[in-house]
């Protein structure tokens, strides 16, 4: 079972065009990453105990459908890869069965003091992330993957 996150589109997430603002798709994904962190042990207790946390390095999102206030959104998370310090996520945002946004994220495990720097994740956390990675290989969903933005 992949960590799943659900939320409802809030009035303050709507923009001038009457649909969810582009940046708020990112907010929903960010909340879903929090849920994943909790699932693999990178939770508040861990962060407080170790002074380590997760920083986002890069993301690439495809906005497929408009989303309106009150819509119920579900985010499914897949792990595409894990190395010592980093993990690579593929997230699908759905309203009912319809994909509304797809995003790919590169995250880094960071110790914040004395100044933020990438640092190896504990083995058990890497293993938990890898377990999701194995699942995704078995499922081989029809991925819309990060690519060059170049259609012009």
């Amino acid at each position: 079972m992949f960590p799943e996150f659900e939320t409802t589109v809030k009035p303050e997430w709507i923009d001038y065009n009457g649909h969810m603002r582009d940046s708020n798709y990112g907010l929903v994904f960010s909340l879903a990453v929090d849920a994943l962190q909790d699932a693999v042990g990178l939770d508040a207790t861990y962060r407080e105990r170790t002074g380590c946390t997760i920083y986002l390095l890069e993301d690439h999102k495809f906005y497929l459908r408009e989303v309106k206030q009150g819509d119920r959104l579900r985010v499914l998370t897949h792990v595409l890869g894990v190395d010592d310090k980093r993990f690579h996520l593929y997230m699908v945002m759905k309203r009912d069965q319809v994909e509304v946004c797809i995003g790919e994220f590169m995250e880094m495990h960071v110790r914040q003091h004395p100044s933020p720097h990438g640092i190896s994740m504990p083995r058990e956390i890497r293993e938990r992330l890898m377990a999701y990675h194995k699942n995704v290989e078995k499922r081989s969903p029809p991925f819309r993957r990060s690519r060059q933005i170049r259609s012009i």
């Binding site: 065009n17 890069e58 993301d59 170049r150």
Partner: peptide, 30 residues
Amino acid sequence: AIYTVETHLRYLKEVRFPAILHIESMILGV
């Protein structure tokens, strides 16, 4: 209206408060 269909961001440095963000823009294709 102009609708965004794809974004790709790279987060290179922390930004702390207070700060003025300066945004530089470039057109790549049309």
